[in-house]
């Protein structure tokens, strides 16, 4: 199994600051903005952005939430993997809000497709944008592209991109792992 590092902690920090600034540039004081992390792994990224935007940049008007997409996925009853749900935490109405969906890796686009449906259960947003730390281009199954992206990667299909977060995995890093399948 080959493992190489794509981003280290310092590079991730720079990227997070840039992404936060890009959001501020577009969303001004965040009065009508809701930033929503997709469960499970997008939530670490949205939590970091929340800290940057509210604490470091002092902009406190945005709503932050977590969205679980398990019951909206399109692979139910199609595989061996059991889909285990996570907590959804959206205690505001998204009606007429500018929603920013946040996930760590954009790969096939199917999770985002599910999230686009799931978010409708909380109202009709004025707009929806997508922010991802890693954009694996050339591997999309659906016509979905990020509006804000940390780093674009041309990983091939038997490679996996793993994003580690200090809170959960002990370090901030992004790895590309090559599975040894003969």
């Amino acid at each position: 199994m080959g493992k190489r590092i794509l981003l280290n902690a310092e590079e991730i920090n720079i990227i997070l600051n840039r992404l936060a600034c890009q959001l501020i540039e577009k969303h001004d004081d965040f009065k009508d903005t809701a930033i929503i992390g997709i469960q499970p792994r997008g939530v670490y990224l949205s939590d970091r952005l929340e800290k940057l935007i509210t604490a470091d940049y002092g902009l406190k008007k945005a709503d932050f939430g977590k969205l679980d997409i398990t019951f909206f996925r399109d692979d139910f009853m199609r595989g061996n993997k059991v889909l285990k749900a996570n907590k959804t935490d959206i205690n505001f109405i998204v009606e007429d809000k500018n929603v920013v969906l946040v996930d760590d890796v954009l790969y096939t686009g199917r999770s985002i497709r599910s999230a686009l449906t799931a978010i409708q259960s909380f109202g009709r947003p004025r707009s929806i944008e997508l922010l991802t730390l890693i954009d694996r281009r050339f591997s999309r199954h659906l016509p979905i592209q990020p509006d804000y992206k940390g780093r674009q990667v041309d990983a091939i299909n038997d490679e996996r991109v793993i994003v580690s977060w200090k809170e959960n995995d002990g370090e901030d890093a992004v790895y590309i792992i090559q599975d040894n399948n003969g």
Binding site: F71, K87, T88, F122
Partner: peptide, 19 residues
């Protein structure tokens, strides 16, 4: 999780749509 779902403004999920 379903208790949270049935307290949403829209209480429906598509999981069993082909059942």
């Amino acid at each position: 999780h379903f208790k949270e779902v049935i307290n949403r403004p829209i209480k429906k999920v598509p999981s069993l749509r082909d059942v």
